[in-house]
Design a protein around this nucleic acid. Structure first.
Length: 283
DNA sequence: ATCGGGACCTGCTTGC
DNA sequence: TGCAAGCAGGTCCCGA
């Protein structure tokens, strides 16, 4: 479900709703998601105040504010995770609701609920120094200043894998998921199956610009909907109708159409993932 | 070092 | 209508 624009949308909504809230209580329905959850360490966060909600790659970081310097909390939504903030006390646990926190903000109680059918998500604590095995080794943020054509070129060098697979490697750049990898290749007019090492510097410039634009457009639109995605405030996103190639196999290529040509989007597989492209204008 | 594949898990859609 | 197969937005880990 969530690609980086969705996670960023959740981060923003979550920040508005829970920044400044104190963690009062935590309830867990199980002790693991993708990884074991450190229940005792998490429960030690009770009494801490959530200063802000940050994001690194697709990890949400709940940054705590307390004199004792408690660890921060790390949340990953995996493929199907959703967070809900509610001002009315929820009753029964929903299906696949794995944990629930009770917060207190401005004297008002709030409930933060995590629902994740596939349980590919995560909840963990991160020490104050920020060191965490899931965060170490991550490449630059796609919208940050360190993600440049020169950097990307260095990352692609010597690699025989498809360029679309290469830009999904978090060591090269974080946050480019399966949907936006296809979309970025389309915007850069780059065939997704091109060997990474053969991508020129000029093409790297195009690709960096394409990754930045496709992600920032999606964030501006509030994140893709794709079936059941719901942002942190419960409002659906609506970027899905802006996808140029993802899920559009057999349909006209919009760029070729604008140029007065006729070509249909094709579907293939790269790195075991569905991949969409126009065979006419992506080379 | 790089790679391809398998793994984790449930739900929905598709096809027989 | 029922059932099995196939597919899904992520990412870690293994063996070659």
């Amino acid at each position: 479900m969530p690609e980086l624009p969705e996670v960023e949308t959740v981060r923003a909504h979550l920040g508005e709703r829970i920044a400044g809230a104190r963690i009062e209580e935590m309830a867990f329905r199980r002790d693991d998601l993708r990884y074991p959850m450190p229940i005792a360490a998490l429960k030690d966060l009770r009494g801490a105040t959530i200063r802000s909600v940050a994001r690194r790659a697709k990890y949400l970081l709940l940054q705590m504010d307390a004199e004792a310097g408690p660890p921060n909390a790390l949340i990953h939504l995996g493929m199907s995770g959703r967070l809900f903030v509610e001002a009315a006390e929820p009753q029964d646990f929903a299906k696949h609701e794995h944990w629930r926190w009770t917060l207190l903000r401005h004297g008002q109680p709030l409930w933060l609920r995590y629902v994740d059918p596939r349980r590919f998500g995560a909840l963990d604590v991160v020490p104050r120094d920020g060191r965490h095995r899931l965060l170490d080794g991550l490449g630059p943020e796609p919208l940050g200043a360190h993600f440049t054509a020169a950097w990307l070129e260095g990352q692609l060098r010597g690699k025989r894998i498809a360029v679309k697979v290469a830009i999904m490697d978090a060591a090269a750049v974080v946050g480019v998921g399966n949907i936006y990898a296809s979309e970025a290749c389309f915007r850069a007019s780059l065939h997704p199956l091109r060997p990474a090492a053969g991508v020129t510097h000029a093409e790297c410039r195009m690709l960096v610009a394409a990754i930045r634009s496709v992600l920032s457009d999606a964030i501006a639109a509030g994140g893709s909907t794709l079936k059941d995605f719901v942002g942190g405030n419960g409002a659906p996103g609506y970027f899905q109708q802006q996808l140029d190639v993802y899920g559009r196999q057999g349909e006209p290529c919009l760029r070729c159409q604008r140029a007065g040509n006729v070509s249909a989007v094709e579907r293939t597989v790269a790195g075991q993932r569905a991949t969409f492209f126009c065979p006419a204008c992506q080379t």
